[in-house]
Simulated scan of single mutants.
Amino acid sequence: MTTLLRIHGFSAPVAGPKLIVLGGVHGDETCGTEGIERVVAELDAGTLALRCGALTLVPVANPLARQRQRREGERNLNRLFQPSDAPADYEARITNLLCPLLDRHDVLLDLHSFQSAGDAFAMIGPRDNTGTLEPFAQATEEGRLALHLGTSRVVEGWLDIYADSLARRAALPGGMPVDDAALAFGWGTNEYMRSRGGYGVTLECGQHRDPEAPKVAHRAILAALRLLGMVASAPEAAPPSRPELLRLVSVTDRAHEGDQFVREWATFDAVAQGEPIGVRDDGAVLHAECDGVIVFPNSEALPGTEWFYFAVPSDRVL
């Protein structure tokens, strides 16, 4: 299997939005690849026609990770997603290829899946703001895209809780101060897209091996194309139902291989304040900080990486 980046580009003779869709940012997440390949086949066969704009499809954004059939090639492609003058690893070199692609587009749809059981959901960025962490002015457009992807839940708040987790680590004995380089490591594809004046949504299509996940990915690509007016819409299409909106409030790292969950959690399992979630290697019990839900529980997380996230209901309106 090649470690070359394969890119499909389609342009209509009529001007319009520019959408890029990524699959396989993590090598063990194949649903996005399958959904993209299906759309490529439909466009090639003429059963799907682009009426305006430009569409770029990248079935496998991290070919080395896919070749190795694991999440990462040499590191997580969805971290430190910024161009580098001196790329130090394979993912940095791929980032240098992907960033100019994103620069030429208005909208990003990034297709993923997750390790635990759970239903598909969309992830969006910050509300409109002029702050220093992630200034943004297209929250309405981004929320509208998430609303039309067909999931029952939408989650906000990634970069905020990443910055908070850095601050907590810095407060520990021997902790490193939080600087721009540390914050930049939290940047993924969507953060980069927003920094370039566009907007982006991550779609978590379900569990890695869920046979429905590729169908979720395929439907989402078509939904995005219809929403942007790039393909014809069915006149009888019903308006989307309102998803549950959640806000990430914390992330907990797995510190030791001996850290274990008290039971097998699924994404969006509800927990009550004080309920035990996991037990550290030294016997310390981790309890839920308040009523909420578990997101991305990963019993296979390596020490020093994200073990689980915690979310609560959001007051945001899409």
Rank of each mutant, 00 (worst) to 15 (best):
G188Y: 04
V178R: 06
G258Y: 12
K215H: 14
A163E: 12
S165C: 13
V201M: 02
E244I: 07
R169Q: 15
A223F: 00
L245S: 05
I161V: 15
M230W: 01
T202A: 12
R194M: 11
H218Y: 06
T252G: 02
D269H: 12
D269I: 13
W158A: 04
D210Y: 08
S233T: 00
P243K: 04
A217N: 02
E212H: 13
I221L: 07
A184G: 07
T252V: 15
R219F: 00
E264A: 14
L228T: 00
V155H: 07
E156M: 11
L166T: 04
R219Y: 01
F185E: 10
L183T: 02
A238N: 05
A163W: 07
P239M: 08
W187D: 09
I221S: 03
R219T: 02
H256Y: 12
L248S: 09
M230V: 03
W265H: 05
Y162L: 08
E244L: 14
R247H: 14
A223K: 00
G175T: 03
D253G: 08
A266F: 08
D180N: 08
I161T: 13
T267I: 06
S195K: 01
D253M: 13
G186Q: 01
L166I: 05
W187F: 14
V249E: 13
H218L: 02
I221Q: 02
K215L: 13
P177K: 01
E257W: 15
G197C: 13
C205I: 02
G174L: 10
A237C: 09
G200C: 09
E204N: 07
V249S: 10
